[in-house]
Each structure stands twice: as structure tokens, then as C-alpha cells.
Design a protein around this nucleic acid. Structure first.
Lengths: 309, 309
DNA sequence: GTGTTCATATGTCCTGGACAAAACTAAGTT
DNA sequence: AACTTAGTTTTGTCCAGGACATATGAACAC
């Protein structure tokens, strides 16, 4: 059907090499190749040098697959369904949270590209709810909504970028404005290389600061060795790592295990975020936080235990 | 020599598998394997299943190599030198600048890992100098100093991370606190994929906002195609791109040229940052800004020209 | 229900060959 | 001296297909 000339014929029938697909889907090259071998999907065309060229629809379907696999489906069961069916599956598993009205307004301004109104709507939500509720309810919901809307093509990448920048502005501002300075525990906050999402990290920082902990935020992508050196330098009691779903659950657990081996026992390690939401068991000596309630509970527990000694 | 038992014998002779090394050095698994094949380094031990196990010294040397390669050295020439020689090479390429006194205090707190004092020193400088001078003098000097000190190993990566986070906090806070909202020109602010430095971008945003322009900040690493779509969506007059010296001058110029081809003529393109500081001629239809003075001048020029029409 | 055992599904690692793009070198031109 | 052009070397990425550890789910026993 689709012979060579058709590629140049129509629109830019944009093609992606395997590295681009790895970058855009988070699926490793090895995984992409082994799926092709085992399941027959994706089955990319080849260039004159026999290298894989993936099409945009393939890439989009791969993203859907990734999302479903992250939330518990098995590759072999779903890989041969059509993109439409996959979309339906995704819709089915989101427990019909029709966009809550309070975030609908915010989203609306974002989609209209009305920067000022968007910013004001966010600020208003923050004022009305207070930092804690704003983070655990509104920002969580917004993140989730935007992630899915982007998948379906409802929002553009640059909308997401703008969203991310403004949430950062607001959270950082709110964290600074926090009254007290915080004392114990001292928590080192960062993510491992490959994990670039800053918002999750800032949300945790906001909650911890609000609860009176002292945060040392290192931003994203700190190699484990550097975390090893940073923990004593800043005399922290806890190292908290954030993993969004940009990273594999396995990769996240491997990182946590490695770090546990590097840090002295008395420094606790907490891990949280989308990638770990459905992890069964934590590595030895690591605490998995599956929600912000878990985070607050962990804080409480630390304080109680510390008092005992 | 080294048979199985010796691994468990001593201290935790911490070993890293190939995925961990990829994560912490940024060198791909393929590259690591091909270096071993071609140059004989690194030559990791193997576990019982013939999988590579890298040692900590190997990992550290790999990071030095990465650093030198990024700044222009060729792998084949340096890969067989010792870690000490590599460190010397790194030191040699940085022309040891002395610390200007006004930033010495700030740096001192950073090196002492005294987070609170560090933050306060920054805030104090901001208050004393005002946003414009703070950005163009203090932050510029700090960036420069820290970049070099890191190369020489005077500050750890995590110190740099902490620095970056705090500067971001302070700049974002200051930008929000700016009195007016800004009107014209409307400037889209971002960087191209591969350029991760956020501080330069925030500095520009601070200056522009202070001068009464309206900024739409998209954070870092926006692909050119998305910039093409974003410019009309946000109705901007100017697209400003920041290039730190993490990227080569050629790559920066190529990016600017490509973008020029994508955007309509009436949208101006401004490019600035370390990578372009010594560029001779700008691509057709692109304005190169080599200093913050250039930036303010460009702003002024835009306003004058706009008034004429 | 809860725990144990086994089969299957799945991701990651391996080797060694191949080649394109980038970087360098050298010779020729303005 | 500065800039092209063309040839050569270096270097990163890709490929195939095999292997195996670990996670998951099913069947079964308590």
C-alpha cells in the first residue's frame, strides 16, 4: 500500500528514529525492539540503512500503552488493541472524575492562552484554599488533567510548559512566604537523573514546609553519589525522592535501593510519586509514600520516634 | 586474581550496573560498551551472570571524561590518562579568576552549607541593589564563579544545585512582586532542546519585566515547532532565546536560523547567552544580544520602531 | 481468606558487526 | 590571513538474536 513516494507526497509524514521514540515515550530501545520481535507492534518502516522509522500514530499509541502499563495493565494483553480502544480503556479507568468546577475555570484560561487570567485564577484558588489544600487537591487534579489532555492532544506542549512555569512561580512564592523557618526533621529533597519533573518536588516541599520541617531542595536530577555526599554536608535526617511517571517503576526502585546502600542507616529514605504509586513492596530500609497523607504520616512518625530516643 | 569471595570480603565495595552508570554519567549503555571494546576502558568486572559491574573509581573517572569531552576534548586522546591527569586537565582549562569581594560573602555561606545564611545574603544583596543591578552584577558574577569553581572541583554538584534552586526562588519571587503588569512588547521566553539552564532565562525575564515588557515564559527546552505554534497563540512580538555555554555556538546559531524560517517576519527573534557571546555575525533576521545592555537597547529600539509605524 | 509452588510474561543485558555524522586535516582559493 | 572544499579518522548509535532474572498470575493446599 504505502510505497516510498507517498512519504514525500502529503504533509510532512513525520518519522521518528528509535532514539526519539525512546525520549518521547520513556520506553527503552531494548523494549521497543523486543516488543516488535514478540508482539509485532510497533512494526516501523526502515530507512535505506535498515534503521527503524516510527510514524506519529505509532508513537501516540505507544504513549497510550505506556500510560496503561504504568497503571497496571500487562503489555501482552493490550498491545494489539487499536488506539481508539486504548483511549476508551484509559477513560474507563479514570473514575469518572468529570473536571471539578474549581479547576475547570483555570483550565479554560490556559486553553484560551490568557496568561494573566490564568495566573490570577491560580492565585485565587491558592488564597481561597490555603497552601495545603491547594497543593493536595487543586494542583494534583490539574497535573493529572493536563497529563491526560496532552496525551489526547487537547493541550499543546507549550501550554504544558506555561502551566509548569506558573505553578512553579506560585509554589516557590508560597513556600518562601511561609511564616516559620521549620526545624526538624531536616529533609533533603531531590530526584534522580532522568526524572525532570519539578512540580512534584515543589509540592512536597510546600507540604513539608507547611508542616514545619526544614527542607533543603536540590532541584531535579541529582546523581546518587552526589546525594551521598550532600546528606552529611547538610546534616539531613531524611532524603526524600520524587518519581513522576516519566520513569519506570523498576528504575525508581533500583535507584532507591542503590541509594540505601550509599547512605548511613540513620538517614531515612522516603520515595514517592506516580512511578511508585502501585509498587508492591519497598526496598529494605526505604519508606514508600503513596499519597500526601502518607507524607504527613511519615513526618509524624519520625517525630514520635525521635522523641523516644 | 579477583575471584568471587573478594567482593563480599571488604567494605561494601559498591558496584554499579550499567544502567546506574548510564544514569549517573549520562553516557549511554552503547557508548560504555563500545569504549570498553575499543579503548579498553572502562573494563568492569562481571557478576555471576556475566553482567558488567563498574567500580566507584571507574564511575568517577567516567564523569571526568564526560566533562572534558563536553568541553571539546576527544575521547580517544584522553581516555587512557589517569584520573589525576584528567583533573589537572580540567584545572588547566579554567583561567582561575579571583573572587570579587561583593560576592565573597554569599559564596562563603554556600561553601559552608549554611542554607539560611546563604539565602539571607542573597536577599540582602537584592534589597540593597534593586532587581536590575542584582541581576546584571551579582547574579552574573555568581554564575560565572560557580561555573568555574565547579569545574575545578571547588564546589560540589549539589552545592550548584542548591545555588540554582535558591536563585530561582528569589528571581521568581522578585518577578512576581514587580509592580506593573507590563504591556509591550510581548516577549516569548524559552530555550531550545538541549539547553537546560533556567537561570539565564529568569535573569532575562527579570530585566524585561523590570523594563515594562510583558513576558510569556515557557521554561527551558521547547522544540522549535512548538515555538512556531506558541508565538501566534500568545500573540507575541518577540521570541527571545537563551543559550548557556553548555551548547556549542554552531548549534545555537543553527537553532536560531531554523526558527527564523518557521516564524513570520514580523515576529522578531533575539538570541543571547554565553554560547553566543563571541559569535561574529548573526543569522539573517536575528538579533544577537551579547550583554544585558544590549537587551535593554533592543527593547528601546523595538519601541521606537513600533512608534514610527 | 492466606500462603506456597509453578508456569508464563516481560524487561534488561549480552556480543560483535555495521555505518552515518561529526571532527579533524590538508590542500586549494579568494 | 581567512575561508572553502575534499578526504580521512573518530565516535556514537543502531541492529539482530540469544539469554536469563524477576514480576505476575494461576493453581493448589492449608
Amino acid at each position: 500500500m504505502n510505497t516510498a513516494p507517498s512519504v514525500t507526497a502529503d504533509q510532512p509524514n513525520a518519522c521518528y528514529n528509535i532514539a526519539a521514540v525512546e525520549r518521547d515515550t520513556g520506553l527503552s530501545k531494548d523494549t521497543l525492539r523486543v516488543w516488535e520481535r514478540r508482539y509485532g507492534f510497533p512494526k516501523p518502516q526502515r530507512d535505506q540503512h535498515d534503521e527503524r522509522l516510527y510514524t506519529l500514530p505509532e508513537l501516540e499509541k505507544l504513549r497510550l500503552l505506556r500510560l496503561l502499563i504504568d497503571s497496571g495493565h500487562r503489555p501482552g494483553k493490550i498491545i494489539n488493541q487499536s488506539a481508539v480502544e486504548l483511549t476508551r480503556l484509559i477513560a474507563a479507568q479514570t473514575p469518572a472524575t468529570s473536571t471539578p468546577p474549581e479547576i475547570a475555570v483555570i483550565i479554560d484560561h490556559l486553553l484560551q492562552h490568557d496568561v494573566d487570567r490564568f495566573r490570577n485564577a491560580l492565585l485565587q484558588a491558592l488564597m481561597k484554599q490555603g497552601l495545603l489544600r491547594f497543593v493536595t487537591e487543586t494542583v494534583t487534579a490539574l497535573n493529572h488533567w493536563i497529563g491526560e489532555a496532552w496525551l489526547v492532544g487537547k493541550v499543546a506542549i507549550f501550554d504544558e510548559h506555561l502551566y509548569s512555569e506558573h505553578i512553579q512561580n506560585i509554589l516557590r512564592n508560597a513556600i518562601i512566604a511561609q511564616p516559620g523557618r521549620g526545624s526538624a526533621p531536616r529533609v533533603l529533597l531531590t530526584s534522580l537523573p532522568g526524572e525532570k519533573h519539578r512540580i512534584g518536588l515543589l509540592m512536597v516541599e510546600a507540604v513539608l514546609t507547611a508542616e514545619g520541617a526544614a527542607c533543603v531542595a536540590l532541584g531535579t536530577e541529582t546523581p546518587t553519589i552526589d546525594i551521598k555526599d550532600a546528606a552529611p554536608a547538610y546534616a539531613v535526617d531524611v532524603v526524600a525522592l520524587s518519581f513522576s511517571s516519566a520513569i519506570t517503576q523498576n528504575a525508581a526502585l533500583a535507584g532507591l535501593t542503590e541509594l540505601r546502600g550509599l547512605l548511613p542507616e540513620e538517614v531515612e529514605i522516603w520515595g514517592g510519586g506516580g512511578a511508585l504509586a502501585r509498587a508492591r513492596k519497598a526496598p529494605q530500609g526505604v519508606l514508600l509514600l503513596r499519597s500526601f497523607d502518607d507524607l504527613r504520616y511519615a513526618l509524624e512518625r519520625w517525630r514520635v520516634e525521635r522523641r523516644r530516643r
